[in-house]
Simulated scan of single mutants.
Amino acid sequence: MTESKINSQAPETLEKIPEEISVEMRKIAHDLSNALEIIVQTSYLLNTAHLKEPASDWLRMLDSGVEKAMSLNLALRTYIKEHTSH
């Protein structure tokens, strides 16, 4: 099933993740959020250092990766929430 078909279904018709798996998935997603927060804060602090080239380019690459990782983590957490009973 495509993602758009899954998301367009009513919540009660979505296939549910078994409880023991969803608990572990929530734990991993939470731990991932904590690890990403360290990276986000480090990136922020590096941005205050006014780095010169090429380090400023590397920091922009880091920031781009951080944004993508945060977006993916949010999508994962949303998916888990939508596909669990709790």
Rank of each mutant, 00 (worst) to 15 (best):
S8W: 02
M25K: 04
K81H: 15
E24R: 01
T13H: 15
A49I: 09
M70E: 15
L14H: 02
M70Y: 07
N73P: 07
K16P: 08
L32E: 01
E15H: 09
N34D: 11
S43E: 11
S64A: 09
A10D: 14
A49L: 15
M61H: 13
L45I: 11
H86G: 05
L32Q: 04
P11W: 07
L72E: 11
T48S: 10
I17G: 03
D63H: 12
E37Y: 09
M1T: 15
A49R: 14
E19A: 10
T48K: 10
I39L: 08
S33M: 03
Q9A: 11
Q9E: 14
R77V: 06
L74T: 15
A55M: 15
A75K: 15
T48L: 10
P11K: 05
N47S: 11
K81S: 15
W58L: 13
S56Q: 04
E15N: 11
S56L: 02
D63N: 13
A55R: 12
Q41R: 12
S4M: 05
E37A: 13
S56M: 04
M1Y: 09
L74M: 12
L32K: 03
I6K: 01
Q41E: 10
T13G: 12
D63F: 06
N7L: 12
V66P: 07
S33G: 10
D57I: 10
E67L: 14
H86R: 07
P54I: 02
M61I: 05
M1L: 10
I38K: 14
R60L: 10
A10L: 11
V23L: 00
M70Q: 14
R26A: 00
N47L: 03
H30G: 01
N73F: 02
L14P: 00
P18I: 09
E37Q: 11
L59H: 04
G65N: 13
E67H: 12
A35L: 04
